[in-house]
């Protein structure tokens, strides 16, 4: 996907989000609740329109057609895909296992995905970071981190 196409999609997407917000706020009758959002939304719409026209012109003028999307298998092999999936899994595991157990597993899995193969390379930094967090956040600052089945 060319950059101008990507930018167009992003501008369109955030404009839709802005529109949903604007429509929700319009329900209110009190001007003080709607005035800023209305003014900002219309300025935002105007600039988004100008940006989209500019992107459309540059896309047409430069002939920077899409170089062909990456294959599904290459997306699956991409470290960024692994990272995204790991983050989602991490967030699912926190309420189930508790912060420390979920963090231990995610740290190890993430390190492995980034090329760590020796057990010491996976476990030692992991333990050091978690012990540090435990001492600073749980013991000293007394921050309540989510607990679950394990810890």
């Amino acid at each position: 996907m060319s950059q101008s196409m990507g930018r167009s999609l992003l501008v369109g997407f955030i404009w839709v989000l802005g529109l949903l917000y604007f429509l929700e706020v319009r329900r209110y009758t009190e001007p003080s609740e709607t005035m800023t959002i209305t003014a900002v939304f219309w300025c935002f719409t105007l600039l988004a329109g100008i940006e989209l026209v500019r992107l459309f012109r540059s896309h047409r003028g430069r002939a920077d057609k899409a170089a062909g999307g990456a294959g599904f298998s290459s997306i699956l092999r991409d470290k960024r895909t692994h990272l995204a999936l790991l983050i989602i899994l991490y967030l699912v595991l926190i309420p189930l296992l508790g912060f420390y157990a979920a963090s231990f597993l995610s740290f190890a899995a993430f390190g492995y995905a980034l090329g760590a193969r020796k057990l010491a390379h996976i476990v030692l930094p992991n333990l050091l970071v978690l012990v540090f967090i435990y001492i600073v956040f749980t013991v000293l600052l007394k921050i309540m981190l989510p607990s679950g089945l394990l810890f």
Binding site: L83, S103, S106, F107, F110, A116, V129, L130, L141, I143
Partner: peptide
């Protein structure tokens, strides 16, 4: 980065939850 990146992720989650 195999040490730095996971550490940044875990610290970020702590920061968000704190």
């Amino acid at each position: 980065t195999r040490i730095l990146a996971p550490a940044v992720l875990v610290f970020s989650v702590v920061g968000a939850l704190s």
